[in-house]
Amino acid sequence: MEVRTIKVFTTVDNINLHTQVVDMSMTYGQQFGPTYLDGADVTKIKPHNSHEGKTFYVLPNDDTLRVEAFEYYHTTDPSFLGRYMSALNHTKKWKYPQVNGLTSIKWADNNCYLATALLTLQQIELKFNPPALQDAYYRARAGEAANFCALILAYCNKTVGELGDVRETMSYLFQHANLDSCKRVLNVVCKTCGQQQTTLKGVEAVMYMGTLSYEQFKKGVQIPCTCGKQATKYLVQQESPFVMMSAPPAQYELKHGTFTCASEYTGNYQCGHYKHITSKETLYCIDGALLTKSSEYKGPITDVFYKENSYTTTIK
């Protein structure tokens, strides 16, 4: 009895394709271990004539594949690729409408935090270190965002349907971005203890939790000093293409032309909904596939993004 075979390709990165001759009487799992086709788990399936010449994702289970996976995804987590594939199996079914010149995501599976993050990423200057993220990001900007969303979920250790947080998501993504040249110098002034300067680099240099107003941050924000008295913390120097200011959701007025974009969060910790506000020729609110415009805006804002380049204080 002759062994019926077909020729397929296996890959971990969709760049390096490895030619395989597979036995049609055995499952993919018996031949390769966990195997995925377009995100779908085909591990328990036997090869079919229609699979001839198709590319299958496999887990990096030998040295060659491990090197290829690390170079593309910059992670050695053995569960990463499987999590990416199972997320992709959902995100490829989502709709990605162009809204006001940006790629958004039609609401499904509690994905409003991903839509808000995706919209924000198209408006701030950011370059990702893992080629996987950078490639998928370019495709997302062009309207094909399924891979990018699935990668975000995998890097953030999230599953489809789980509630997510924009600030946490951005923080994970910033860790995989090139923020080497970003720098922030802060000064804390206390009447009792004097003053202390701190220099922050990388992710810490672009994120701040405690106030939404970048102007206020430049002037000074009140913080408790270690001595128990009130101290003032203010920005001395900022070198970065953008800054992200966050605070627990509270009524906040966004003035046209003073910011790049913002995240609105309605609801409580267990259950809520994100919308995205962007400042173009007027203010726009993007909620999944829905767009509304207004000249002014007041609502429960939790993150505001500002364009920056270089700032030095005039406070002496």
Score class of each variant (00 low, 15 high):
E2G: 12
K218H: 03
S50G: 12
D38H: 11
S104C: 13
T313V: 13
T10F: 12
L153V: 05
R4E: 10
Y306T: 01
Y284E: 12
T278H: 07
Y306G: 02
E52K: 10
S246H: 01
V185P: 03
S50P: 07
R167G: 02
N157K: 15
G272W: 00
A177K: 05
V99H: 12
C149S: 06
T302Y: 00
C190L: 01
Q31A: 13
A132I: 01
T260S: 07
C156D: 00
L121V: 12
Y274D: 00
F32S: 07
G194H: 02
H90G: 12
F242E: 00
Q196H: 12
N111T: 02
K93R: 12
N49A: 12
R66Q: 10
Q30A: 12
Y214M: 12
L151S: 04
E168K: 08
A247H: 06
Y265K: 00
Q98W: 05
H51G: 04
D13P: 08
T266G: 09
Y28P: 06
A132N: 04
Y137W: 10
Y311E: 11
T159W: 10
T103A: 05
I301D: 01
F56E: 01
N14Q: 13
A87P: 06
E239K: 11
T5G: 09
S25T: 14
L65C: 07
T169N: 04
S104W: 01
H51R: 04
Q238F: 01
L153Q: 03
V243M: 05
V99N: 06
N110P: 04
T11S: 10
I45R: 12
I152P: 00
V21S: 15
N178F: 05
R141G: 07
N129S: 09
V99L: 14
A142F: 11
V8C: 13
S86R: 14
L133H: 03
G29C: 10
G267S: 11
Y138P: 08
S213K: 03
D41A: 13
F128N: 03
A117Y: 03
S310T: 15
E125W: 04
Y96L: 03
T91A: 06
C149D: 03
Y36F: 10
I15K: 13
L121W: 00
C261D: 01
G82E: 08
G29D: 10
C182H: 01
P78T: 08
Y311D: 08
K106C: 09
Q98N: 12
Y297F: 07
S86F: 07
I6A: 08
L118V: 10
S310N: 09
E296R: 11
T10P: 07
P131G: 06
K54E: 15
F128M: 02
C193G: 01
C261V: 00
D287G: 00
Y72H: 13
M244S: 00
N100E: 14
E253F: 10
L126K: 00
I6S: 07
P131Q: 06
F174N: 02
K316L: 15
